[in-house]
Design a binder for these strands. Structure first.
Lengths: 187, 187
DNA sequence: TCGATTTGGTTGAAGCGTCACTCACCCTGC
DNA sequence: GCAGGGTGAGTGACGCTTCAACCAAATCGA
């Protein structure tokens, strides 16, 4: 019923040359950019991109404390990842756990002074890095294009049948929150 | 000489609102897209994105064998990563190592039959996924924009002082080779 | 009210990536 | 020749991520 070529999908939709070019460029760029951002972050400060993401969430909250699951949802992380990561950050003194009085199962992640000074030290350098590696190179039109392309794809990935594919904490309200990277943490 | 605020860099260049929007969108999209691609790849076939990348390199070579360091360079991976990864792939029968007769230090990674059928099975589904998640959503102009934006950033990252920051195998001729992802592995 | 299910969160094991180190081999100058 | 340095490759340890299993508190249904 299905020989080796062609495959089950009667006809395979390969990428055409322009798509190939764009896709290869994107894949390489994205890998490289991630590597550079992580490297710069851990050179300039003493935290990782993941630490930074968690700390941003905390500093964005008025009383600098967030429920674990809420953290998972806004970062689009699995809850076990949050749990492990917070455990490691706690060991390094960047955050602290606290029980939730209104829900016996729940717990809060709370920013410590050390955590606050860590992100205050890291954020400006990170913003500068993002400028150097990305925005200094792009025209206004390209920035706009990057944003709208990314939004299109992101929306596709987080709505409809796609959303269910990934076993993360169902990121219900995802589009709302998530200030995430690159933002000035306060002020 | 340097108070806590402002930092050493006299004035921090934060991102302006449009940049913020674009950057957050990009970061979220990229994370989500990676997750979905990996997931789909390991659901549809029995290999990971990393396996796929290695196998593509091998199938792109006439005699389906590549020197380890060459593999590292074209994938922009650290050589220890290649070494570990090839060891795991070898354990699963996807590739095989062979000594290099002309250089006693060197060794080849060779595609096995099992490896070839693994990528032949995976490639069409992967191409289809890339269409579904990316290209079906974009106009021709956006595809072009994605490509040129990515190329600009990638070039920035792999030339000049930036290139040295990352401790990969100095990807000298990087821009040449690297057929990488999404390509139809043969034919 | 009591059992069943859902929800918030943790844990342990296993795969992956990086770092620092090592080893073997090659090449050059002397 | 051979000492020194460079290069191709592997290794072990450690941190990160995922997966599956688990636990306890909360909620739902009858």
């Amino acid at each position: 019923m299905c020989q080796l070529f062609p495959y089950a999908e009667a006809v395979t939709r390969w990428l055409d040359p322009e798509q190939q070019r764009a896709w290869r460029a994107y894949v390489r760029m994205q890998g490289e950019l991630n590597a550079h951002l992580s490297r710069r972050m851990s050179v300039d400060s003493d935290i990782s991109m993941a630490d930074f993401a968690v700390l941003v969430q905390l500093t964005d909250t008025p009383d600098e404390r967030v429920r674990v699951l809420e953290l998972a949802r806004s970062l689009h992380w699995e809850k076990s990842r949050i749990s492990h990561h917070v455990a490691r950050m706690e060991k390094r003194g960047l955050v602290r756990r606290e029980n939730c009085s209104s829900d016996g199962r729940g717990s809060f992640v709370v920013l410590t002074d050390q955590g606050r000074s860590a992100i205050e030290e890291a954020a400006p350098a990170h913003a500068e890095t993002v400028h150097e590696l990305v925005f200094d190179l792009l025209t206004d039109a390209e920035v706009e294009a990057l944003g709208s392309i990314s939004e299109k794809i992101f929306t596709r990935l987080t709505t409809g049948e796609c959303a269910a594919v990934v076993a993360r904490c169902d990121a219900d309200d995802a589009m709302e929150v998530v200030p995430e990277e690159g933002g000035c943490p306060e002020a």
